[in-house]
């Protein structure tokens, strides 16, 4: 089950700068730790985060092992049209988690 929380203002004026926040539950296991039996815990991190606004990429980030568990990203963008903000997190296994939010621009 994807556990992601995204925060986008439901409504904005055209040209307004809005605050977007996205958080996802993920262990972000670095691959440098050992388990209680001395066995290596395999690396399992999110490597890429992308946000698209009506299909166009507006923000992306690469994550590395130093990023803590349950990564939180916050950024600003200019509200241009009413539409969908789609969020996508890709992890080491190639698994993709998604979330989305609507914004109404007047």
């Amino acid at each position: 089950m994807t556990r992601a929380l995204v925060s986008v203002p439901p409504a904005a004026k055209r040209g307004e700068i809005v605050d977007v926040r996205a958080m996802i539950a993920h262990p972000m296991e670095t691959g440098y730790r050992m388990g209680p039996n001395g066995a290596e815990i395999p690396r399992d991190i999110i490597t890429r985060f992308v946000c698209t606004y009506d299909g166009a990429e507006v923000f992306s980030a690469e994550f590395f092992p130093a990023v803590s568990a349950n990564p939180f990203v916050s950024f600003n963008l200019i509200a241009t049209e009413s539409g969908t903000l789609a969020f996508e997190w890709t992890d080491d296994k190639g698994q993709i988690e998604t979330a989305s939010a609507e914004i109404v621009v007047s």
Binding site: R3, A4, L5, S7, M23, I24, A25, N70, F72
Partner: peptide, 15 residues
């Protein structure tokens, strides 16, 4: 609530 990581567990609990 948009920055509190505990809300991820509240979300899971609601499910």
């Amino acid at each position: 609530d948009t920055t509190n990581p505990g809300m991820l567990w509240v979300l899971q609990g609601a499910g």
